[in-house]
């Protein structure tokens, strides 16, 4: 949320400097917290490994033969959580800023719905398993986003039309998912339901590699295009006057954000609300008028890791998919945010 910006001339530079350093401090703290959460998530399990041993094992020192458990069994899961969370957080922040509405995250405007529908078709109707499902999900998200963009286009793209067309697409895709669930037998359908909730179970190094590589490609582009977000938030006319190529900037940002959401969803399924909560939390933490892309990614990673910790260990009898926890936490936050954003007049 943009807070009061001190505009008295002598203090402008000082205030801006303070904001920038605050953003840096926040990023450092978030990184530390994320690393801590990662270590804790690696240390807990059927065999509990003391934190110092975890850290030593992470840095390549084999303590009491624990490094196999750490690096082969638990680390991939934790890393996938961090990477997917960061991608979702970044994607959500870009969408929210672009549409100038904090509710417009990829889960709500139907893009992850495309990934879900494609994955469920692949799982249940075609009978694929493993990597091809992820590939289908990735393609589904991209195709849906392209369809939404094309259908929204009418001498340019406006925020509200994008959202409403997304909602319509989402409705159609949800019905396809439900149809596939009724066609399958109950065990397959349950497996699909776990995928639909978003789960970090059975993630291996190959998932880490694929997700890591795609993020290494997309994230720099996203951050580069991110410099257009601030002028775009000032409105189309101002942005144009500031020399932003409007449609090209918007197109580039949408492609980057969609690719991020698609990569993350392909890896872990449509984990609800991570993309949605990260941006607003990061803005609040970092303060100032900036878009806070890096903090958003870090918040996303932290939210995902902590949610997975809770999902795995908080309930004695069952292990939930991570998406259950993010949904339970995200839903009340969503209502609160809806109320607040509308009251301050940013709701559309």
């Amino acid at each position: 949320m943009p807070t009061s910006l001190d505009t008295r001339p002598p203090t402008v530079a000082r205030t801006r400097g303070r904001k920038r350093s605050r953003s840096t401090v926040v990023s450092l703290v978030l990184t530390a917290a994320g690393f801590l959460a990662l270590c804790v998530s690696v240390s807990l399990g059927e065999v509990t490994i003391p934190l110092p041993d975890v850290v030593r094992a992470l840095f390549g020192d084999d303590a009491d033969g624990m490094s196999y458990i750490v690096t082969e069994l638990r680390l991939p899961r934790a890393l996938v959580a961090v990477l997917a969370g960061a991608a979702l957080g970044l994607s959500g922040a870009i969408f929210q800023s672009l549409v100038r509405n904090p509710l417009a995250s990829p889960d709500i405007i139907g893009i992850t719905g495309g990934a879900s529908a494609a994955a469920v078709v692949a799982l249940l109707l075609i009978g694929l398993r493993g990597f091809p499902v992820s590939l289908a999900a990735f393609a589904g998200a991209l195709a849906t986003a392209a369809a939404i963009y094309v259908l929204t286009w009418r001498k340019g793209v406006t925020g509200y039309r994008l959202v409403l067309v997304g909602v319509a697409m989402g409705a159609m895709l949800t019905s396809i998912v439900s149809y596939c669930l009724t066609r399958a037998d109950v065990y397959d359908a349950r497996e699909a339901l776990v995928w639909l909730t978003g789960s970090l179970n059975a993630k291996t190094w190959s998932t880490v590699q694929i997700l890591g590589l795609s993020l290494a490609l997309i994230v720099p582009l996203a951050l580069l295009a991110g410099r257009w977000l601030l002028p775009l938030e000032l409105g189309d006319d101002t942005a144009q006057a500031l020399g932003v190529p409007l449609e090209r900037a918007r197109m580039g940002l949408i492609v980057a954000a969609v690719a991020l959401a698609a990569a993350a969803t392909a890896a872990v399924g449509p984990v609800a609300f991570v993309a949605f909560v990260s941006g607003p939390i990061a803005r609040r933490l970092a303060g100032g008028p900036g878009i806070a892309l890096v903090p958003s990614a870090l918040v996303g990673a932290l939210v995902m890791t902590v949610s997975d910790l809770v999902a795995q260990h908080a309930f004695a009898s069952v292990q939930f998919p991570v998406g259950v926890i993010t949904a339970i936490v995200g839903a009340p936050y969503l209502l609160w945010l809806l109320a607040v954003t509308n009251r301050v007049g940013r709701g559309g």
């Binding site: 509405n101 509710l103 417009a104 889960d107 709500i108 405007i109 959202v163 409403l164 909602v167 989402g170 949800t174 909730t197 609800a272 609300f273 998406g323 259950v324 993010t326 949904a327 339970i328 995200g330 839903a331 969503l334 209502l335 809806l338 509308n342 709701g347 559309g348």
Partner: peptide
């Protein structure tokens, strides 16, 4: 409409 879509998304997840 957006509030409705958001609440639906939350309810579907729950």
């Amino acid at each position: 409409a957006l509030a409705g879509a958001a609440v639906s998304a939350a309810l579907v997840a729950l």
